[in-house]
Amino acid sequence: GFTKEQQRLGIPKDPRQWTETHVRDWVMWAVNEFSLKGVDFQKFCMNGAALCALGKDCFLELAPDFVGDILWEHLEILQKE
């Protein structure tokens, strides 16, 4: 899971503390893990605080249908851990 990747890359547990690099690493991991298609990494050029502050509607505009939902749900789980 993502926990191993977080440990390997030194990504903080709390997504709100992520840098732009951490956000990119997470999106890249999720794309590979969940076989997601059509993700534009440029749209995720922000730090974790900005990403978490978007709200669901704005977040879902960053990625194609269903893909955004998967990313959003995973981000929500990470914020609760």
Rank of each mutant, 00 (worst) to 15 (best):
G48S: 01
G38K: 11
V31Y: 04
L78E: 04
H74D: 07
C45D: 14
T19V: 03
F44N: 00
F41L: 15
L54Y: 06
F41Q: 09
C45E: 14
A63N: 05
T21I: 08
T19P: 00
W18L: 00
T19F: 01
T19Y: 03
D14H: 08
T19H: 08
E5G: 06
T19C: 07
E61T: 14
F2G: 06
G48Y: 03
W29N: 03
V23W: 01
L62I: 11
P64R: 03
V31H: 04
H74K: 06
A50W: 03
R16M: 12
F66D: 15
D69E: 12
Q7H: 12
F2P: 05
D65R: 13
K4Y: 12
E5H: 10
M46P: 01
V31L: 05
G10L: 06
P12A: 04
P64A: 04
F34V: 02
V39Y: 02
A63F: 14
L51Y: 00
L60V: 11
D65K: 13
L36G: 03
T3A: 12
F59Y: 01
V31R: 06
H74C: 08
F34S: 04
C58T: 14
V39D: 02
L78C: 08
K43I: 04
F34G: 04
I70G: 02
V39E: 03
D65Y: 12
N47Q: 06
A50G: 07
K56R: 14
K56S: 02
G48H: 00
V39M: 06
G38H: 14
G48P: 00
Q17M: 14
N47D: 13
I77G: 15
A30Q: 08
G68Y: 03
P12K: 04
E5L: 09
G68I: 04
Q7I: 15
Q17G: 08
V67F: 06
A53D: 15
F44A: 02
F66V: 15
A50M: 13
V27N: 02
I70N: 03
F66W: 09
A50H: 10
S35F: 05
A53V: 05
E33F: 09
E73A: 10
P64Q: 06
E33D: 06
F34T: 02
D40A: 06
E61W: 01
F66H: 15
E5I: 09
L9S: 09
E76K: 11
E73N: 09
K37T: 13
F66L: 13
E33M: 05
F66A: 14
H74E: 13
C58L: 13
K13S: 14
F34D: 03
H74M: 06
P15Q: 01
L9K: 08
Q17R: 11
W18Q: 01
Q7K: 15
D25C: 13
T21N: 15
V39C: 07
